[in-house]
Write a protein that binds this DNA or RNA. Structure first.
Length: 326
DNA sequence: TAGGCCATCTGGTCCT
DNA sequence: AGGACCAGATGGCCTA
């Protein structure tokens, strides 16, 4: 049997469409669009190029070679033929979609990194996990709101307790360390809060998680600059939420999240909070008239969403109050 | 080795 | 048709 001539390059390039769509044959993308330093062989079976794909390709080629006679005998709805051109288009689309998805996730991670950088406890060596970053951010907002309303000190225990609600023990320790306080009772005491993993490349820490007290500092940095914003706000420049706002559910909600998985932690001292790698903002940036107006009226404009990685340096205080604006 | 975290690929869905 | 978004799957890296 003489095999119909097929260019070698075509055999390599064109996988059987069905197999490829089912994931049995790897996407040719395979990270080609990813810089070498970033590419990791994740993505599971899709990442194994050439594995067993040639047989499928041959079948596909044979099927196409047989032409219409075989196809006319089939029952059921006629499938749209996957011509080489279609396969190529499909593949190109998939590659583009993968690149977009990567880019989208990178943008998401950038935003998360920006969020980390404005957290009260910011450490470069001890990077908060994504989920812990979100939880701490939520707590931070709640804690600042409560402090604002009740006139509490941001160094008070209540502030820290709110800050630590639902956080893992390691993160709680970190926050406590930054605040130079003992961890709040009950905070981070879930059974699963054991030290298990730590941030990649971070040195081993000496935190005693079993201890109810404060492990030996330093843990990270608690940037009091964030709190200065809060104090400045107490001058009445910004609106305070009314108690009814809290009653209506806008205030600090009870912790309702699932148990937090353990957090990576190390205990190295870290210099003062570092600016976002994307800060200062590019010169070409200037708020739009709409955004400027929103600033003047106290609304927070989350520029990060619109301008990717830029977040204005002096806006955090307003983010608190803007929550309660009508 | 188990478990946590992460990056990536993928297919589905919705929208323009 | 194509882009955005999402969730599932997968494998790598790291620590205990």
């Amino acid at each position: 049997m003489i095999k119909p001539y097929v260019r070698q390059s075509e055999e390599e390039e064109v996988a059987g469409p069905q197999q490829w769509m089912d994931g049995d044959v790897s996407s040719p993308d395979g990270g080609t669009a990813v810089p070498p330093h970033r590419y990791r062989a994740g993505g599971g079976s899709q990442q194994a190029p050439e594995m067993g794909s040639e047989d499928a390709e041959e079948e596909e080629e044979d099927e196409e070679a047989q032409g219409d006679e075989g196809e006319s005998k089939r029952r059921g709805p006629k499938k749209k033929r996957m011509t080489k051109a279609r396969v190529e288009r499909f593949r190109a689309r998939r590659i583009k979609a993968n690149a977009r998805e990567r880019s989208r996730m990178h943008g998401l991670n950038d935003a998360l990194e920006n969020l980390r950088s404005i957290m009260p406890c910011h450490s470069k060596t001890q990077k908060l996990s994504k989920i812990e970053t979100l939880r701490l951010a939520r707590n931070y907002i709640c804690a600042l709101s409560e402090a604002l309303e009740a006139g509490l000190s941001t160094e008070s225990r209540a502030f820290m307790e709110t800050l630590c609600k639902g956080l893992s023990q390691p993160t709680t320790n970190l926050v406590a360390g930054c605040l130079q306080m003992a961890p709040a009772p009950g905070a981070g005491n879930r059974p699963e809060d054991r030290p298990r993993a730590r941030a990649p490349h971070a040195p081993l820490g000496v935190v005693s998680y079993a201890s109810p007290g404060l492990p030996s500092p330093p843990y990270g940095t608690f940037d009091s600059a964030h709190l200065l914003h809060l104090r400045a706000m107490k001058g009445g420049v910004y609106e305070n939420p009314s108690p009814s706002d809290y009653n209506s559910g806008l205030g600090t909600p009870p912790y309702d999240g699932p148990p937090t998985p353990p957090l990576s932690i190390s205990t190295n001292a870290v210099p003062k909070q570092e600016p976002s790698p994307h800060y200062p903002p590019p010169h070409h940036y200037s708020p739009s008239p709409v955004e400027q107006d929103m600033y003047q009226t106290g609304y927070d404009v989350h520029l990060e969403a619109s301008y990717d990685t830029y977040h204005p340096p002096s806006l955090p205080p307003r983010q608190i109050t803007s929550i309660y604006r009508d």
